[in-house]
Write a protein that binds this DNA or RNA. Sequence first.
DNA 1: TAGTTAAAAGATAATAATTTTCTTTTAAGT
DNA 2: ACTTAAAAGAAAATTATTATCTTTTAACTA
Lengths: 132, 132
Amino acid sequence: MNYELLLKENNLKITPQRLGILQLMHEAGHISIEELFASIKKQFSSISLATLYKNINAMLETSLIKEVKAPDIKARYEISKTPHAHLVCHVCGEFKDIHFDIARVAHTIADDNGYTIDDTSLIVSGICPKCQ
Amino acid sequence: MNYELLLKENNLKITPQRLGILQLMHEAGHISIEELFASIKKQFSSISLATLYKNINAMLETSLIKEVKAPDIKARYEISKTPHAHLVCHVCGEFKDIHFDIARVAHTIADDNGYTIDDTSLIVSGICPKCQ
DNA sequence: TAGTTAAAAGATAATAATTTTCTTTTAAGT
DNA sequence: ACTTAAAAGAAAATTATTATCTTTTAACTA
């Protein structure tokens, strides 16, 4: 995955910190601020939490990344890809991408109401087999 | 709507504050903490914000109410009803219930993965006709 | 390739949101 | 009415997020 291109396409300056954030986000699939901060500090020991928040916000604004929030679970961030659903265990926190095409459904809903879609989120939250 | 029964069914004590919260939530359809606090103070001028949070959390735990969070918009709370989608304008904040049956889709996803469902949320976020 | 500039990083302080603690009050069951 | 556990209210504490300011750096240009 070409993170430099991703940033460039979104008119964001390429910085080592941003590349590190995107790399970690990509490896994890989806990651919370806490986890991200703990991991990124291994590469940039003096990185500021403020920097992390500012970058997350900048990348959210351009939709380069996406926030996913499920009940009982801290928000997680992921690099935007084709819309998909999330299955979340609220006991152990397991977070799974589900390749279900939510775009069709979303378009039907939005069109019926004259809306333009910017984001669609389908989150199924429950208990995974291990936690039952 | 019988709020006393709702509370009783969920083993929560019936208090005037809780009845007020449920009433406002029902009238609004979905409401943020801020709005709720502003409104509930008209009835209970000395109600504490801590009380509001504690009650929201208690009612969330029993699933008597549900939290709905869309990008750029503060979390909103609603009395749990049959699962439905939400359409949100992130410009003016308009929040619309959509009577689309998301349960079927959710069950398919959950069953395929051995999950038990506790909650399903489909949020389509975009720009409403007025804000375009 | 150095020079310029606007943006980003980092440090810290400030603000906002949420939770905790403690005391007083009250709902609900004898 | 009496008892008890839970809820309310007030205030403080904690946590999350944002803002401010100075220093550093990416990106562009001469």
